[in-house]
Write a protein that binds this DNA or RNA. Sequence first.
DNA 1: GCGTATTACTAATGCGCATTAGTGAGTCAC
DNA 2: GTGACTCACTAATGCGCATTAGTAATACGC
Lengths: 366, 366
Amino acid sequence: MEEPRKRARPGRVPAPAGRTSRPRQAEVARLAGVSQATVSLVLGARKQGATISEETRRKVLDAVRALGYVPDPAASRLAAARNNLLGVFSFTSTFPTDVQHSYYPFLVGVEQEAAARGYDLVLFTGSSTGGAGAAGPNALARVRLADGCLFLGRHAPAEELRRLVADGFPVVHLGRRDELEGLAWVGADYISASQEVVAHLAALGHRRIVLVREDDDAPASTDREHGFLKGLEEAGLPGGPAAVFRSADPERELTAERLRGWLDEGVTAFVAEETDTGDAWRALHGAAHFVGIDCPRDASLALLGSPPPDLAEEPVPTGFDIPRPRLGAAAVRMLAALVSGEEAAEPLVACTFRPGSTAGPAPARY
Amino acid sequence: MEEPRKRARPGRVPAPAGRTSRPRQAEVARLAGVSQATVSLVLGARKQGATISEETRRKVLDAVRALGYVPDPAASRLAAARNNLLGVFSFTSTFPTDVQHSYYPFLVGVEQEAAARGYDLVLFTGSSTGGAGAAGPNALARVRLADGCLFLGRHAPAEELRRLVADGFPVVHLGRRDELEGLAWVGADYISASQEVVAHLAALGHRRIVLVREDDDAPASTDREHGFLKGLEEAGLPGGPAAVFRSADPERELTAERLRGWLDEGVTAFVAEETDTGDAWRALHGAAHFVGIDCPRDASLALLGSPPPDLAEEPVPTGFDIPRPRLGAAAVRMLAALVSGEEAAEPLVACTFRPGSTAGPAPARY
DNA sequence: GCGTATTACTAATGCGCATTAGTGAGTCAC
DNA sequence: GTGACTCACTAATGCGCATTAGTAATACGC
């Protein structure tokens, strides 16, 4: 009769004495005179199977109230269930000192939509400040606490994201991100919006239009150019490289002479892309002012996006607005879809045309 | 030989086939030819006990890299360890549409300090928007995901907080909160700051000073009044109820007549408290302007806090600045202390005096 | 009255990790 | 060479919950 060798009981040490530990399902069960499993069944919105009598349910719920039981989200998550938490991760500081550069407008929509769908939100700081597991390849590990995660910012490391995607972790990137196979994203439809702006200018009689853009290959930039050229084509206007002025430093390179040159060539409308810095618009705006253009009488200006805050007071530029809160909301919708295994939702969010006051009829040229 | 009745194996169903599951410590262990426990020991910053040979450590770390292992935060947390997550919970919407009323400035400091201390941040939205478990008594349940939690906003429900505190869960409230026994908090030292402003005015020769405040019993308001009166007393100036004008609607009640009355009585300096709306300062500022006071020649104004954003352009008011980012940082320090079981840190953060240009020497009166 | 359903519940199990008692090998002293 | 020790590691355990096979009790059918 060889009993298996008895070993002592390792494992966790009992909870620190001083701390009144909050109740577990086990305590609730004891008070209600049922099993822990029954408590779980009563509390969980069980899809099928087990049926619980009204009587038992009541007893359990009474016990829950009496003890003030609240479930442990970590345990819920571990037990392979979901915990109704959606993560949000931004790689630059989530809360930069300068509000203008933040994702704040997006977060407004994200929060609302998440709340509306019954999700709680968990924000992970990218620790641009250099803390925590920021640097290491584990930077993204903690997002797995949530059921899925939304990523903000261009700097999301591809390798890490790929990893999450490969593991089947629901991930949505805010902003187009095509190069990463299988990565879901939500973005603004810059192409259509830019095209619409050009159409507007064409309808006003402008026959030669120039786009001022920075030297950047972000999708947001190329999309705008794409839409711009598409708009020209659609209107039967001359496109090609001559219609696009690309500069790494527009404020320096977009000189008065250059502007006058364009005007002399018959260009009557100018379009700038919106960027982080707003440099393209600032340069265009500045040069036009310097040259003494009476806008929109002498020439029309348009901005493919919203003006930088410091130029917000000026006459409202014709162009379009990026519905940031709605983008955030759309991203949450898609993430929710992924989490619940549904088919992905619409990734493109339409921008809204902004009439503004910087575009008018093309001046009659002699 | 009665074998215990064989029962089928319940428990979790195997992971969905399609999803390439990420590696566990067990896989790492297998690859490295060691036990799971060893992996845990190598990865964990073990405090004491087990020693691991350099050889084994290397093997394990190699395997970790090879498989790209990342720990599951939920499991870490469940296994009674800490997960280096600090929660931040705000009861009003964390991201209100209006940036000005948000906790943004605090969050800047919170994020930085947390990162600096090697903590990750988890933000919980209070779902003021009405989603999730906002209403129920479980609103705070999810904060237990983290090692401790920081609470923003006056509306943190006392019952819930008391509960967390009683359970020994590390909690810090941003903003004074004395009525809740045992609740740790961090706040700005309005008393000293207000006192300093009065001292400054007194030093400029002002003998009669009036405080304009709203009708609110928040600690932030009473502290300012307290400091104001203390400052008067210290300077040997007349205090008492006459020195404080308390109004639920200062913009309506702080009339030009009233202001003129004060001036006639020999009041030469006015102090307004800062509130959410900035109404006190707006009313004071407006009335002074209306009456045609040349500030600071005819009379001095001071603001116990920062001006509302729409009045930021005006001459900078003399007063003090609430170092919101530093407050956030201090709150994180205190929370970190609680989490690690240290003694609580300093709860009061000093405000910084702002000379401004609305206070000058008292006018000579005949 | 005996198989078959149905109902209402419980036992057992594992999620992934941290923890600790225990084990076996090696070292040293006398 | 034997006890006392150290070193390096592993086995076993549980954190709190969700899940599911199993079971006892009763109802039903013929």
